[in-house]
Structures are given as structure tokens and as C-alpha cells.
Write a protein that binds this DNA or RNA. Structure first.
Lengths: 228, 228
DNA sequence: CTTTTAGTTTTAGCTTGCTTAAAATTTGCT
DNA sequence: AGCAAATTTTAAGCAAGCTAAAACTAAAAG
């Protein structure tokens, strides 16, 4: 019934999605195998091994010792999985009221299980949302993905100016709970009042009061200039 | 990330669910390995092999050469999967309007991907349905499963009396399309007007006209005496 | 009570995706 | 340029779940 196909496909899909996400996140085409190993929690050797198979299937290009890159076909598969994942997140959050910090984990499994036809139905049911509950853009059914070019990481913006939160990049449940607890959400206004060079942390001001964010956290919060 | 656990669990789950379904369908405790092999589309050897592992995990009892039986723990897992499957079917059908004949296939994949917590949310969202769109009962969250003791297969009922359709047992998409096309659905009134001994087919009467059903089909349609 | 037939189990071997260990290559630093 | 550290690749091997084929068991039929 599944001939190791399920497993195989699952592994393939997870690898492709990881390459796509790392590529988008780091803003580069070529992804280091080490990043993959860390992200998927396997050894470098396992990644190197799998890369051979992905190359054989025409999904990635291997620049020996330099890193890997998705082919057009690989990108198509990657965006499809990201689309499935983010649509499930919207659905779980808006329709079933699953808490913000639990949806990622649940969607991680559902993304592999649903057909394209079903995802299109869910897309329609949800009214064709453009972003997921973390603010990440949702690829279209045809495989296109648009970005907000004006977005900046919170640790890169100018001090003293007003910004609006647009996106939280892949933060785990613990961080999301922490941020929610302190009043953070998509659309909230924030301002950097002080930055500390020794650890690159920032002190920010928002409706709920002020808050100190580590470099790691502020880096994953994206904002645009306030229109006020 | 998944250590071959995903594959393992998927296989385990499919085997357990199949044993549970065959056991319920045939009304016996002990299931022949051959049935499993046919259902899962693998060789007898593969089933025999897997049975060893399931025994080791305490999920089944192997009556050597006679067949296998689920332990209490095995039954619990089996009913859980049946619950997931049927809840997804209701959801797909009532909320997303996925056609009757497509929901089984889609649910087959989703049932493995969702957590118990999510299924409970979906159960609540759907208003705690008691049967799926094919009329099959949905096990409770605590693992109990109730039957309609008055149900009879359409090829066992008395000629000339009025009955109401309550359940379609695991019919594939083609049959479901066929039946829908001829006006069959849960709650429809039917009457057996004639039965043919040579092939055990039956001629039935219903609102939309009369229809000849083969033994194989009539056997999978369940009804109760009409209350009119 | 033996033979036939149907179903079960064992054996040997395959593929996938993983591991560890060691070898090869690149990169960064002086 | 040259060496050390980091990364990538290869090699050998393991577990899961499958197949094919051979060996076995049970039960029905003569």
C-alpha cells in the first residue's frame, strides 16, 4: 500500500520545504547542508545522502562542497508545501480557534496529508487569505509567492520612529506565548527607544508598556513604517 | 526529526485500524491474516511479519495459524483512528462541501495527521455528530463505540416491507456515485420487491423508481424498519 | 485416515533513510 | 602561502517494512 513511498515522500517533502524556507529566510539561493542538518535534526551525512537522491529526482542542484539550490521543480514543490502549511494555520486559528502558539506544530503534520484540491477548497472557504496568523505570506495555488518589500527586522529599524508589526518569523510556541503575553500581535504599534550594543538587544515601547527584546527575538519580528 | 518513527507509526496505525474494521465488519474477534493482506494490498508475509511487532508492542494477540485479535490497547488505538477518520469525513462533507464520494480518500490521510486535541475541537465545532456521512457511527473521545442493533443488510430484509437507509458500509467512490445518481442517500425509504436466487441480487423500489442491486452492493447497504 | 487445498510462517534479500567514523575539500586566519 | 577549523562527502552498517519463494499447519473432502 505504501511501499516506503509514504516515508520516502515525507522525507523528500520535508527536505524540499526546509531548503525553500532557509533560502527565503536567508535571502540566498544556495543553502548550506549544515543549516539543513540543524533544521531537520539529522547528521550532515544524512543530508548529503539525501541530496544525491533529490538531485537524481531533479529537485535540487548540488554545488559540490558549496551548498544546494532548488530547481524550478523543487521551488514549485517547496512553495506548495509552504502554501499548505500556512493555509492550515489560518484555518486552525480562525475557524477552530486553536491558540496561536499551537497551530504551527499541528500544521506541520496536516500539510503533508491534504490534496491540492482540498487545500484550494479551504483557501476558498477562508476567503483567500494572503497571510497566515504569523504574518507570513501564503503562496498562490499557481505557485507564486509575494513579499512585502518594505518589511524590516525590528533590530534594523531607526530608533524613535513608529512602526507596525507585520510578521513573526518561525518563532516557537514558547516565544509566541511570551510575546502574546506582553501584548505583541500583528498590527500592534512599536517604537525602538534604546538599543544595547553589547548584546544587540533592544528596548521597545508599545501600548502595553516597554519591553526588552534579545537580538534573537527582535531579529524575527518584522515591521513596516507606521502610516500615522 | 522522525527517526523512521513516522513510517513505523503509520504502518502500525494502518494495521491496527484494518484489524479493528475487519473485526467489526465481520462480527468476529479473530481476523485472518489473509484478509489483512488483501485489505492493505501487501503480501501475507508482510502481515505475518508485522504481526510479530504488534504482538511485541502489546497491541494484538496471535492465535498461531488461526488469526489475530486486538488487545484492549489495540482496540483503543483502532477506535481512535476510526474516530479521526469519521470526524474528518463529516467535516469535509458538511463544512467544506467535499462530495460524498471523495471524502473517504482524503480522510484516509488526515486521520493520521491530527492530534487528539484537534479532533476534539473539530468534534465540538461540528456539534458532536454521532455518525459520518455514510451513516457509520463515530466512536467517542473516550473510546466507546455504539451500534444500531436494529440495522439489517438490505439483502437480508423481508420482501415488501418498508425500510429506511441508515448506513453505507465502506463503498468506494464509484459505487457511491452510482448510488447517489439513483437517488440513494441516508434516510431514503426503500422496499425490496423481488429477489433473484441465482445471483442473490434484489430489485428494490424507492421514490426515484426501481433499481436492481447486485449481492455485493445490497450487502453493504444497511436499513432499519420504517416507522411510518 | 489420508489427501488436497487454503492459509500461515520462515528465510533470504531489497530499499529507504538514518547513524558513526573517517577521508576529502573549502575557508579563514596569520 | 600555509595551517587549522569547519564543512562536505564517502563508507560501512542498522532498522523498518516490503517481496518472493519455500516450508509448514489445519481443516475439509474423499
Amino acid at each position: 500500500m505504501y511501499d516506503c513511498l509514504v516515508k520516502h515522500q515525507l522525507a523528500t517533502q520535508d527536505y524540499i520545504k526546509s531548503i525553500a524556507k532557509l533560502s527565503l529566510k536567508e535571502g540566498v539561493d544556495v543553502v548550506k547542508l549544515k543549516w539543513m542538518a540543524l533544521k531537520l535534526n539529522v547528521t550532515n551525512a544524512a543530508v548529503s545522502d539525501m541530496v544525491k537522491k533529490l538531485v537524481k529526482e531533479g529537485l535540487v542542484i548540488n554545488h559540490a562542497y558549496k551548498g544546494i539550490e532548488l530547481t524550478d521543480q523543487g521551488w514549485f514543490m517547496g512553495r506548495r508545501l509552504i502554501r499548505h502549511h500556512r493555509l492550515w494555520e489560518v484555518f486552525l486559528h480562525t475557524t477552530l480557534n486553536v491558540p496561536w502558539d499551537e497551530i504551527h506544530e499541528e500544521a506541520e503534520h496536516l500539510e503533508h496529508a491534504a490534496s491540492d484540491a482540498l487545500m484550494n477548497r479551504i483557501d476558498e472557504y477562508l476567503g483567500f487569505p494572503t497571510t497566515d496568523p504569523h504574518g507570513n505570506p501564503i503562496p498562490n495555488g499557481d505557485g507564486t509567492l509575494s513579499f512585502n518589500a518594505n518589511e524590516q527586522s525590528l533590530n534594523n529599524v531607526s530608533d524613535g520612529e513608529d512602526y507596525v508589526v507585520t510578521r513573526f518569523e518561525s518563532l516557537d510556541a514558547t516565544y509566541l506565548q511570551y510575546l502574546t503575553h506582553h501584548g505583541f500581535a500583528i498590527g500592534v504599534s512599536v517604537k525602538v527607544v534604546k538599543r544595547f550594543d553589547f548584546d544587540h538587544s533592544v528596548l521597545i515601547d508599545m501600548a502595553g508598556g516597554s519591553l526588552q527584546l534579545s537580538y534573537q527575538i527582535s531579529q524575527q519580528i518584522f515591521v513596516v513604517k507606521s502610516m500615522d
